[in-house]
Design a protein around this nucleic acid. Structure first.
Lengths: 205, 205
DNA sequence: ACGGTTATCTACCAATTGGTAGAGAAATCT
DNA sequence: AGATTTCTCTACCAATTGGTAGATAACCGT
């Protein structure tokens, strides 16, 4: 809640810089593993400046999560609207849209995965934020199945499977490194294409 | 290293009980988020008893990881040997074999995901343990592609994709809960079947 | 019976954690 | 210019962290 001081801050990008560092650290190492001191050190500011902008660590976590959810929602909805009508093409468009920011900042989807670790109740507000997005995805998929344009199955579970695939790949560079994958431009394109083919094959009617 | 006191322990299943609790806690909440006191409390023993069996927290982490890797290796290799020749059937057999213990104890695969968070170098020994398993999987998949019995693609990346899908699904009950999935016997079977169909479709030639 | 190993405990400790109190600049308003 | 709000800082603090020291039983082979 806590109506923010509003981004008046004369020169102040401090709040944004804190949010960005916190996003990266929380998303890659987990909430509990990152101390306020570490974040402050990375931002180049005193710990108490964090606690000025965010009343507590939990507040900061919530802000980071809300930020990420908003960002993802925008990306997904924009891609969804701009995409072609065919469901496989549309899915590819959305996956590509998410993939780009996701592999550059594994923290983004990493945060999503951290959700399940939040003290129950603390994740409530965010779930409410994400639920409509998920519900729409499930409804869309169900509809396309009925039209025979996607392989038939349980729409809810298939949405989860797609989510698991994309998120897993984007958040676990280690799993890719161990099979000898290199994170360079060619590697990224190859990975994206392979994932696209994988999902297309999995969902084609 | 540290040659263990060997499981002589007269009545003592203490070491095993510690390992089990630690596995579940580490796998679901992450290494840093779980304190030795918490593990000790769950086992019902003093913290110093942990430090008797494991010289340090890091030692405990390594033991937990080695344990998990051994368990997974056994399960996978047994399923691989017992499975039919057809690659899709064989893959299904392996996935089923992993899926059963994995959804009952999300911590198992959760630990695997935690690997990328370990202080680099600390993950080395375990990677060496897992690498042969991964390499064999990639070689097998490459072979089956050449025979035309699996959809062609980059074997290494496809192995990673399968890993991401299975692991993601098994470790994120939250992602399933949000689409309304229930973790009961019927739900589990449905999820397993849906995942099987998903992977079969994704890999069929 | 008894000396030594095995296993568990209570008592501490230094470092780090999230968080409080409040001083000191710097910008803004009147 | 002076008062006030906005922002960042230097202390501090209680609780928790991983870990050490050492006492104390319980069990063993001889």
């Amino acid at each position: 809640m806590a109506s923010r001081p509003a981004p008046t801050s004369r020169r102040g990008d401090t709040r944004e810089r804190i949010l960005e560092s916190a996003t990266n650290l929380f998303g890659t190492r987990g909430f509990d593993s990152v101390s306020l001191d570490q974040i402050a050190a990375e931002v180049g500011v005193a710990k108490q400046s964090l606690l000025y902008w965010f009343a507590s660590k939990d507040d900061l976590v919530q802000a980071v999560l809300a930020n990420m959810a908003a960002e993802l929602t925008v990306v997904v909805e924009a891609a969804m609207r701009a995409a072609p009508d065919d469901p496989l093409d549309r899915l590819e468009a959305v996956v590509h849209a998410v993939f780009r920011p996701a592999v550059r900042r594994p923290a983004l989807l990493g945060l999503l995965r951290e959700l399940s670790r939040l003290p129950s109740g603390s994740a409530g507000p965010l779930n409410e934020h994400l639920e409509p997005l998920v519900e729409r995805a499930v409804a869309w998929m169900s509809d396309e199945m009925d039209r025979g344009r996607l392989r038939r199955g349980n729409p809810a579970l298939i949405v989860s499977l797609i989510y698991a695939t994309v998120t897993g790949i984007a958040t676990e560079p280690e799993a890719l490194r161990i099979v000898g994958w290199q994170q360079d431009i060619a590697g990224l394109r190859q990975l994206r294409n392979e994932m696209t083919q994988f999902l297309r094959a999995a969902l084609a009617p």
